[in-house]
Simulated assay, not measured.
Amino acid sequence: MHAPGNGPIFATYYSILAVLGVPANLVTIVILSRGRCGLSKCITRYLVSMAVTDFLVIITAVVFTRLRPIYVPVSFLSTTPACSLFIVFSWVCKDTSVWLTVAFTFDRFIAICCQQLKLRYCTEKTADVFIGTVCVIGCCKNIPLYFTYEPIYVLDNVPWYCRVKKIYYSSVAWKIYDWHLYVINPCIPFLLILLLNVLTVRHILAASGARRRLRSRSNGDKQSDPEMESRRKSIILLFAISGSFLFLRLTYVVNFLFVQFSSKSYANSSNSTDPKFILQESGNMLDLLGCCTNTCIYAGTQTKFREQLKGVVMHPLKFIRHLFKY
């Protein structure tokens, strides 16, 4: 754990992230909640919950934790209790967002590779249970973080700002907690999604080859295959989401492994020339960028989502045009 960068580069980057991420996730939530994108209710449940948590990550981790200290350095939110609370909220939201991506990937793995379990597992009820469980565990896991911070100074009995207690770095118990914090997010999710994608690809290649051979013998190669076309769209969505997750979290994982195996600590200063700081903040910036990419993925892979998005964008423009007419 460390203080985020606060230079002009970070101010510009996180400002753009907030300006684009907040409306993008809100629009995604609205479109998917209407259920007109041709997706199953089970998939829609996961995608909506992912969009909600991504929106909350932008609010807590970007707006309040990174931009607020830059643009409004002194406010009620600068007090130690409020500062600690928002840091905990940001970790809860990030953990929940990451593990919902894992849950979605596992759901699609079952749907594609385990046909016997598909009818029992890939249901709205199962999705609701997984989403609720992930949210509860995410909250419980990060509650101890609140007690790792102390005020930088106290003025008129009011504690101001946050810094990590020294005991956090010297206590064995806190070291174990810090290690498990980063292992659970993003190391284990990274490996799980990678493994599930490898297994899914292997199953798809085997099943597609067998199906093509069967159809060529009976109907010829020229006839279309509606089932394979439907499966192809689902696979494209799965690989786009999980592939984006793996790519954007790779630097974050590399930084964690570098710290663990090199016996070095995380960068505690905002020294832009320190290689540790550059690697660390690059990982954080790409990690948070992942909260804005899903809308682009949906628009690029789902025709009906693009149609709904076009309608949402055009609606206020039509309203403005009518105002000018009157």
Score class of each variant (00 low, 15 high):
Val57Trp: 04
Val57Gly: 04
Val57Cys: 14
Ile58Met: 09
Ile59Ala: 00
Ile59Asn: 02
Val63Met: 09
Val63Pro: 02
Phe64Gly: 05
Phe64Lys: 02
Phe64Arg: 01
Thr65Gly: 00
Thr65Asn: 13
Thr65Asp: 15
Arg66Cys: 01
Leu67Asn: 09
Leu67Ile: 10
Leu67Ala: 09
Arg68Ser: 07
Arg68Glu: 07
Pro69Val: 05
Tyr71Gly: 07
Tyr71Asp: 05
Tyr71Ala: 08
Tyr71Glu: 06
Val72Pro: 02
Val72Ser: 06
Pro73Arg: 01
Pro73Ile: 03
Val74Cys: 06
Val74Leu: 14
Ser75Ala: 13
Phe76Asp: 06
Phe76Glu: 07
Phe76Ser: 10
Thr80Cys: 15
Pro81Asp: 15
Pro81Ile: 13
Ala82Lys: 08
Cys83Asp: 11
Phe86Cys: 08
Phe86Arg: 07
Phe86Asn: 12
Ile87Asn: 10
Ile87Leu: 13
Ile87Glu: 05
Val88Arg: 03
Val88Ala: 10
Val88Pro: 02
Trp91Glu: 14
Trp91Lys: 14
Trp91Phe: 15
Val92Glu: 13
Cys93Met: 14
Cys93His: 12
Lys94His: 06
Asp95Glu: 11
Asp95Trp: 15
Thr96Arg: 01
Thr96Trp: 11
Thr96Cys: 09
Ser97Pro: 06
Ser97Val: 03
Trp99Phe: 12
Leu100Phe: 02
Leu100Gln: 04
Leu100Ala: 01
Val102Gln: 06
Ala103Thr: 01
Ala103Asp: 00
Ala103Val: 00
Phe104Val: 02
Phe104Ile: 01
Thr105Asp: 03
Phe106Val: 13
Asp107Arg: 00
Asp107Thr: 07
Asp107Met: 09
Arg108His: 06
Arg108Ala: 05
Arg108Tyr: 07
Arg108Ser: 10
Arg108Ile: 07
Phe109Glu: 02
Phe109Gln: 00
Ala111Met: 07
Ala111Gln: 10
Ala111Gly: 10
Ile112Cys: 03
Ile112Pro: 01
Cys114Phe: 11
Cys114Ile: 14
Gln115Arg: 14
Gln115Glu: 15
Gln115Leu: 14
Leu117Glu: 11
